[in-house]
Nucleic acid binder design. Sequence first.
DNA 1: TGGGAAACT
DNA 2: AGTTTCC
Length: 424
Amino acid sequence: MIGLVDCNNFYASCERVFRPDWEGRPLAVLSNNDGCVIARSNEAKELVEMGAPTFKIPPAARQQLILVSSNYTLYGDMSRRVTATLREFTPDVEIYSIDESFLGFDGFPLDGLIEHCCEMRRVVRRNTGIPVSVGLSTSRTLAKLANRRAKKDATFGGVCLMDSDGDETRAVLKDLPVTDLWGVSGRLGQRLAQLGIVNAWQLREADPKRIRARFSVVQERLVYELRGIDCIDTDDYGEPKKNIMTSRSFGRLSSDPHEVRQAIRAHAARGAEKLRKQGSVARAIQVHLKTNKHREDLAQYHPVLVVQLPHPSNDTRVIVGAAQAALKRVYLGGYRYMKAGVMMLDLAQADTLQHDIFDSPESDAERERSAKASAVMDELNRRMGSGTVRLGGTKGKADWKLKAELLTQRYTTRWDELPVAHLK
DNA sequence: TGGGAAACT
DNA sequence: AGTTTCC
């Protein structure tokens, strides 16, 4: 059996753990830059759409809503706590996202499994304050559907087991539009509809070979998954990323070349850090800038430039230098930039990399020096807080930083931001 | 008017 | 390189 544990309204729930006075009230969490709504408590769902731009929230709704900036330090730590509790209930925990984990229950007797998961749910709630729902079935896709039923229908008590066969499963699948399935959205849904496949049951009964021929191996797997056959390959969980992007909107529009350069240098430095963390080197990087496409009154410019690095590298100085050089080639004055980003491309594992056979001994020495310098920097930043050691021209607290005007405390990771209880 | 990653086309 | 999909 496979379980899918999904935290209910995760970000909103994290915010409420330390603000019991927000219990039962409509609460929405805003994106980076306070730009749009990215999470809602149940009470907020009738007041505001997911993804709604903050400035478009009607005043009437806004008055009732508690709005907060996203507090990723808090959510990341709460997520870690939830996962730690899940591990007490099965050793096989596969983190799928910040608020979802797949659990393997191989070897667990089917008999007490639901009760086991109910207990898990209670303990997660007790340990972390976060409510979760559990879906159980024999494939990830069905576990996900079971989870959704557990969420929707309170009579399940938060845990729903869906058989891979039987009348009930059949009824559920018949009732489910294909576009509600994991991995099927608008476009694919339209193409499936052309074959007369509009609900999940029809897809389950389709000929996998035919589906593979018309679509791809991913959709073929989906057919098997709907039949309860586990066939999503999870070997690539925990594998190093194949590319790494760091990008961010400016808090406002910027036409200051120094500011743009600072941002690009900081993103590049962050990218190099991420490379080292997963033991990769990049063979190329990409730099991009964007103006605000919503502002039709302003001139638009969206340059993208890929540059090959002379040697694969994860050295902050090399990456930052290359990014800045790339920026220099595409930057044009006179535009008001909205966003800047740097991507690490064509990644390879640092330790298995075939060194350039024309490399001289000096460059070997240089490579070692560079690795040492980076390691010291990473260690200092890990121990003393990120941003303690930076390359010049990558200001940490810069003007181009995000807007987050409604930030809550980092209750669980900062001594000076601990929650305080007032006793009467 | 989010940010990040992957796979497909 | 752009699009689609996920969270």
